[in-house]
Design a protein around this nucleic acid. Sequence first.
DNA 1: TATAATTACGTAAGTGATTACATAATTGTT
DNA 2: AACAATTATGTAATCACTTACGTAATTATA
Lengths: 320, 320
Amino acid sequence: MDFIKALGYLAVASRMKRLTDRFMRGGSQAYKSLGIDFEPRLFTVFYLIYTQDSPLSISEIASSLKISHPAVIQTTQMLIKKGLIKSFQDSQDRRIRRLAITGKGKELVNFLIPIWNDFETATSELFEKADVDMLDIIKRIEARLDEEDVGNRIINRIKQRQYNSVEILDYMPEYKEYFQKLNYEWLEKYFQVEDLDKKILLNPEEQIIKEGGFVLFARMEEKVVGTTAILKRDEKTYEIAKMAVTEKAQGMQVGRKLTKEAVARAKEKGAKKLILKTDNRLRAAVNLYRTFGFKVTQTESTASGKYERERFGIQMKLDL
Amino acid sequence: MDFIKALGYLAVASRMKRLTDRFMRGGSQAYKSLGIDFEPRLFTVFYLIYTQDSPLSISEIASSLKISHPAVIQTTQMLIKKGLIKSFQDSQDRRIRRLAITGKGKELVNFLIPIWNDFETATSELFEKADVDMLDIIKRIEARLDEEDVGNRIINRIKQRQYNSVEILDYMPEYKEYFQKLNYEWLEKYFQVEDLDKKILLNPEEQIIKEGGFVLFARMEEKVVGTTAILKRDEKTYEIAKMAVTEKAQGMQVGRKLTKEAVARAKEKGAKKLILKTDNRLRAAVNLYRTFGFKVTQTESTASGKYERERFGIQMKLDL
DNA sequence: TATAATTACGTAAGTGATTACATAATTGTT
DNA sequence: AACAATTATGTAATCACTTACGTAATTATA
């Protein structure tokens, strides 16, 4: 019974690895059973050095083979120990060590060429029998990965799902405590909770909504994980403030969705300008706002807000 | 510039490895960037334990996943350290350690299931975009490898080529010295060169050919690498003797080709029986003869030949 | 023309698997 | 019942890479 096989695409990488291991082992098995003092892993580096007319440097080899330079160093050390290549310092640039094939190396190549030819035909025949054009397949997959690597593909998909699962809700009295709690959570961590904070957080209805602003909540899987306020400054100007996302939900696009909704609400109300105050040290937040088109308008030297923390803060603006 | 790409099937294993590494790295990248304390290499073992109703043993896991049991031990140790699984001794068999998921483990699975789902869709979408049915491809290649692994495919091809490159030549006076030299080479190594040996090796024309026998030589890439004699015992009986293959060419099917030709020559001459004397300790030789159908007819206890060494020797016979 | 940035190489440690070997417990055989 | 063979697990060493970090040499820049 083969569990990995049953997992389908969930374990396709493991299956590819298992298959690759089989191929690599096949090569060393062949050398060993023929009593040849050579290993498959030496092949690419050795053959590259052999084919090149002028001696190559470590990093030239690494980039040609798309492997790390320590891998090249380890391989070349082994080849030098076997006497198949030699190294010498570059005459112009003393950082560079150049690698060239030796007489013994050339001899071995001549001996190995027919054997490598057998390697090649044996493999290509195997793929032919399996009715698989492996080179073309690898080429096509690599091309896709050059566009976007596996990690990013997965991350983007996860983020998209998380983003979709977040609901933005209007102010409801029963969520009032979250407005306070979520803001205290991070204010206490980074700054002090000042009197003006307390006043607004305790009385959002009075301080924000009655003044023509909004309070929004973000809910994810039945839990309130974020909040923000949109304060009305004047008919044409609104301000995003008191945005807070609980630590567990950070990185899950909650802030993005709250900001998106805040922008939409301000537009609806006929605002021409949306401003916000934040701290240059909160990189994630600043970058998030930037992606919406917010620009920094004031830095600490020019700011003169109501909060103590604003001497480290910045102001940002978005024209609607 | 991508040298490996240019090598085609000669480096297809390296390219597969490079591609696989990219996939494996993608997974850990995704977990890391989401701040999840989990690794791709834990997945198969963890998921297998999760899906199974009754706790599995180390070796059950190893065989289900087709990996070595030390790999399972290492993985489970890490999972235990993370508190995701627990282990306990089997009640019947005290050698067996059974592994079961913990409450914390189940919690993590529930959290990870949607993420694993994203892994799966991201990968399958990637392959779809590359127009590659990877699962089917792996299946087809694995099926071929189950028939014959990569190592054997290569070795067989090399042996076939070597076999084809060996020429069998009739006796020529200028090769006379090789008949002596090649035989001394191994006789001196395993036994003593006895007087009867010397007489025959010095005078093959007189001792073998004039008596109605043959001497054959094997040539590989312009070098004489092997020899054998076919002695005429009587009208219906010939004997293969003095077969020698130089050490460097051993394992290259030279002996096989010499034997094949010897059998053909004896048949041509109308022989009904081909015999030979060898030593039970020379396993490669005895096995070679066996593949031609030779059967052991006498062992040391019954043998009474002319040679000192025959008290360790055997006689073999092939009916033509 | 200092100094900062970049490049080339080297070393160390980690990764995720393997093979080889050891030991304890169980099962099979005479 | 005694011993051999097999099975289950564990440990050590190895493999073929990687990432992370350090240093020296060169090049770019203010």
